[in-house]
Design a protein around this nucleic acid. Structure first.
Lengths: 145, 145
DNA sequence: CACTTGTAGTTAACATGTGAATTACATCTT
DNA sequence: AAGATGTAATTCACATGTTAACTACAAGTG
């Protein structure tokens, strides 16, 4: 078997695909001066409620060192709050603030419009199928152990 | 239309998929003290021959500022060479060196084995289909203008 | 209780991602 | 030829990715 060319390798294809998709969201995020990662943190907290850092890092696919910095920045801008957990001095519960929720509300319509435009160009069924295949790939490569 | 949850959004799925795949390659790259991006640069140059920086950046999906730093580092380690283009003082041709080619040769077997293992777990047909769908997505989102 | 082991977060060091500004050339226009 | 415009590459500033080391705390073991 030949090694795959850079024009048809899974890592490169995934990278490029993500790039073209994110290009549509970046202007929106830039206008509100938040990064892609900060946006992920906000959305995860809004969806799931308060979380500890480790769980938040997993759900937002952000590494612990990055999350430490992001939490610091977002706490200063008062988009999230942090409350120590009783009985365990290491942990803290991170939660989205009213200002954070307001930001999500504000961006929601534009966000939906962007997703709809992507679905329209690419095809709704294709989109669903792609998501299924990606989830399947992720499953096949991450043993639950 | 509801905004997609973080559990089923295309950007997140692409990010996670790339993560699980790259996890298999990182140990190999780390053993040879090269980064994922440096590895992409080497492979592109080996496949296509000498390129100017802009073209190399496009093919390797690396932004110009990053490529500047990467070239500097790889030139110092003598994995690539750089030759000024006649008649245009701005451009330079970047080429892989014998040492760079040797590194590619050395890693090739392990690289193929990793790809084969992924195909085996995920399914060869699925793998091909996923590549097709990703290419199609990239096409649909990047107008030739 | 002292000691070991394990876990949650953080810090450090360096590479890359990202957008904006800048430099160095080329080319076009008049 | 001089000035305007365009292009290739670099530099800057800051955020994140990545690995390793480290701190703080918890829980198990003797």
């Amino acid at each position: 078997m030949l090694p795959p060319s850079t024009r048809r390798s899974l890592p490169m294809a995934l990278l490029r695909a993500r790039e073209v998709i994110m290009a549509h969201f970046r202007p929106m995020l830039a206008r509100h001066d938040i990064t892609e990662q900060q946006w992920r943190v906000l959305r995860v907290l809004a969806e799931t409620g308060p979380l500890e850092a480790t769980e938040l890092a997993n759900r937002a696919s952000i590494l612990p060192p990055s999350l430490t910095r992001i939490i610091k920045a977002m706490e200063e801008r008062e988009f999230i709050t942090r409350n120590k957990v009783k009985d365990d001095g290491r942990r803290a519960l991170l939660a989205i603030s009213p200002a954070g929720l307001a930001l999500i509300e504000e961006l929601s319509p534009e966000r939906v419009a962007i997703y709809e435009a992507i679905e329209k160009r690419y095809g709704a069924e294709e989109h669903e199928r792609l998501l299924d295949m990606l989830e399947s790939l992720i499953q096949s490569e991450s043993p639950i152990e």
